[in-house]
């Protein structure tokens, strides 16, 4: 079942398309990173030569948090990191991805929002 879900993504990667994955799986609490799902690690293992670019987005949660219907304009920031590749182990890969994402988030300077 799990294999089938990623099959379409695999064909896209094989023809050289760009695939965008939101590893959090859903919009959780706004402006809080939640635990990443490991689908991206399965893909990286299957396609070890495909670069995985961590992209951190800030501000979308303020603009339109989960459960709200009213969009309030804010400037959003997007941070694009250096690519990483499959490193041989699912947990190590996910740990590296989380680390990279946290580093990207630390580059930004965001005002308090509670």
């Amino acid at each position: 079942m799990h294999q089938d879900r990623l099959a379409g993504v695999g064909t896209a990667l094989e023809v050289g398309n760009i695939v965008i994955i939101f590893p959090e799986g859903s919009r959780g609490n706004p402006e809080q990173l939640s635990q990443f799902k490991s689908g991206v690690a399965h893909l990286a293992r299957r396609y070890p030569t495909v670069p995985v670019y961590p992209v951190f987005i800030h501000g979308l949660g303020k603009t339109l948090p989960k459960g709200e219907a009213l969009l309030v304009p804010f400037f959003c920031d997007i941070f694009v990191g250096e690519p990483l590749y499959w490193n041989g182990d699912k947990f190590r890969f996910m740990a590296e991805l989380s680390q990279r994402m946290n580093n990207l988030a630390a580059e930004g300077q965001f005002p308090a929002w509670q």
Binding site: P30, G59, K62, P65, E68, L70, V72, P73, F74, F75, P111, A112, W113, Q114
Partner: peptide
């Protein structure tokens, strides 16, 4: 919009900002 993005705001005030 730039100002609202720079200053600390409260989540409760989204609609007020609107």
């Amino acid at each position: 919009k730039e100002y609202f993005s720079l200053i600390p705001t409260r989540r409760a005030d989204r609609r007020v900002l609107f």
